[in-house]
Amino acid sequence: MNKKILNVQHAEFKKKLLEASIKKHQSVIDDFKRSIKELLGTETKINEDEMDMSQQSVNTEQIQRANAIGDQVSFANDEMTILNNMMPSIEDIHDEVALGSVVVTDKMNFFVSASIEQFEVDGIEVFGLSTESPIYQEMKGKKKGDKFSFKDHHYTIVDLF
Rank of each mutant, 00 (worst) to 15 (best):
M1L: 06
K3G: 01
K3V: 06
I5F: 02
L6H: 09
L6V: 03
V8P: 03
A11P: 09
E12I: 11
E12V: 04
E12T: 02
F13Y: 02
F13N: 01
F13Q: 00
K14F: 05
K14C: 02
K15C: 01
K15Q: 10
L17Y: 03
L18Y: 07
A20V: 03
A20E: 10
S21W: 09
S27G: 04
I29D: 08
D30A: 14
D30K: 14
D30I: 07
D30F: 11
D31M: 01
K33C: 06
K33F: 04
R34G: 00
S35W: 02
S35L: 09
I36G: 04
K37I: 13
L39V: 02
L40M: 15
L40V: 14
G41H: 08
G41N: 06
T42P: 04
E43V: 15
T44Q: 13
I46A: 14
I46N: 14
E48Y: 15
M51E: 15
M53P: 12
S54F: 14
Q55G: 14
S57A: 15
S57T: 15
T60A: 15
T60H: 10
T60E: 13
E61A: 10
Q64E: 13
R65W: 10
A68L: 13
D71K: 14
D71Y: 12
N77Q: 13
D78S: 11
D78R: 11
E79S: 13
T81I: 09
I82F: 02
I82W: 04
L83H: 08
M87D: 02
P88I: 12
P88A: 08
S89Y: 08
E91M: 13
E91L: 00
E91I: 13
D92H: 13
H94Y: 08
D95E: 10
E96W: 00
A98M: 01
L99I: 10
L99W: 08
L99M: 12
L99V: 04
G100E: 07
V103I: 11
V103A: 10
V104A: 10
T105W: 11
N109D: 09
F110P: 05
V112Q: 06
V112M: 09
S113D: 08
Q118I: 00
Q118C: 01
E120H: 03
E120K: 06
E120I: 13
V121Q: 02
V121K: 06
V121R: 04
D122N: 06
D122C: 05
G123K: 07
E125R: 11
E125Y: 01
V126H: 00
F127G: 03
F127N: 05
L129D: 03
L129V: 12
T131H: 08
E132T: 03
E132M: 10
E132K: 10
S133E: 01
E138S: 07
E138K: 12
M139N: 10
M139Q: 04
K140T: 05
G141H: 00
K142C: 04
D146Y: 00
K147M: 06
S149N: 05
F150H: 02
K151P: 03
H153C: 01
Y155I: 00
T156W: 07
V158S: 01
L160F: 00
L160R: 08
F161L: 09
F161V: 08
